[in-house]
């Protein structure tokens, strides 16, 4: 089975995120980059599927030069190969452009399964997996809390508002996973050493045969017209419970007209 995992490098979870004053895009220089937390679960799930069924895992990322660290991390967890799409013309791409680029790279390599995280912690759109499925014209089995491959079928439990749905599709298919699905492994020392020798294909948009008119800020179908920092919240009142904490809260709730 050939599995691709799409991973994104995002600013460190705890770092304060800011938009750039010049072009209203996320300031990726301002903080350390890490693998999007939710994509770790995608990598883990791919590795488990390969361990059970045999095959190969390729990690695919689109991002600036240093996103190579994130590819390396996935390789040290156990993925076999990497593809890194990097090009200045990609800067400012929105979800539509990102899904276009990823779909083209994926289509050129014919995978049985493409696995995504369910959301990136910076953009938080949760749309790229569905968009890639739409572009590739393959079934979308997303928000999986459980994934099974059975011959040419993929069966998942899709997390819903009220519980979960059992969903099945034939391969090739696009999967996204939620954090409940597994516990991602840490790269071992051996894994880290082995990763250094694994193949990573670095592609420019020209190498990937992408249409420049569909990429970057100028091709985005949405524009940020203004942004501002929310004024920091005025410090609230914090009291120590001396036996009347509950009553004090009621007092506050009454002033605010909640009771």
């Amino acid at each position: 089975m050939k599995i691709a995992v799409c991973v994104k490098q995002v600013p460190d979870t705890w770092a304060e995120k800011k938009l750039r004053a010049d072009d209203s895009t996320l300031d990726r220089e301002a903080a350390d980059g890490v693998m999007n937390e939710l994509d770790e679960y995608a990598v883990e799930e791919a590795l488990r599927l390969i361990e059970a069924h045999g095959g190969e895992v390729t990690v695919v990322t689109m991002g600036p030069e240093r996103a190579a660290e994130t590819v390396r991390k996935a390789l040290s967890m156990g993925a076999d190969a990497g593809v890194h799409l990097v090009d200045d013309s990609l800067h400012g791409s929105d979800a539509l452009a990102t899904s276009y680029a990823l779909a083209e790279v994926l289509a050129a390599r014919s995978f049985d399964l493409v696995i995504f995280g369910s959301e990136s912690t910076d953009a938080r759109m949760s749309v790229v997996p569905a968009m890639v499925a739409e572009r590739l014209g393959v079934p979308q089995v997303t928000f999986a809390q459980k994934v099974e491959v059975d011959g040419t079928l993929v069966k998942i439990e899709r997390q819903t508002e009220y519980g979960y749905d059992d969903v099945e599709a034939s391969l090739p298919a696009v999967v996204s996973v939620v954090e409940k699905i597994n516990e991602p492994r840490y790269p071992s020392f051996k894994g880290i050493m082995a990763a250094k020798k694994k193949p990573v294909e670095t592609l420019s948009t020209a190498d990937a045969g992408l249409d420049a008119a569909k990429l970057g800020s100028s091709a985005s179908w949405t524009v940020v017209s203004a942004f501002a920092s929310r004024p920091p919240k005025a410090a609230g009142t914090v009291v120590s419970d001396e036996g009347t904490g509950g009553e004090q809260i009621v007092q506050f709730l009454t002033e605010q007209k909640f009771v």
Binding site: T237, S240, D241, G245, G246, Q248, L253, V259
Partner: peptide
């Protein structure tokens, strides 16, 4: 927090409920 209580929830919350 707009309003916070430093305390054990098992004493603060039942008192809050009762008062409401």
């Amino acid at each position: 927090a707009d309003f916070g209580v430093v305390g054990d929830l098992f004493s603060v919350v039942p008192q809050l409920t009762e008062e409401i």
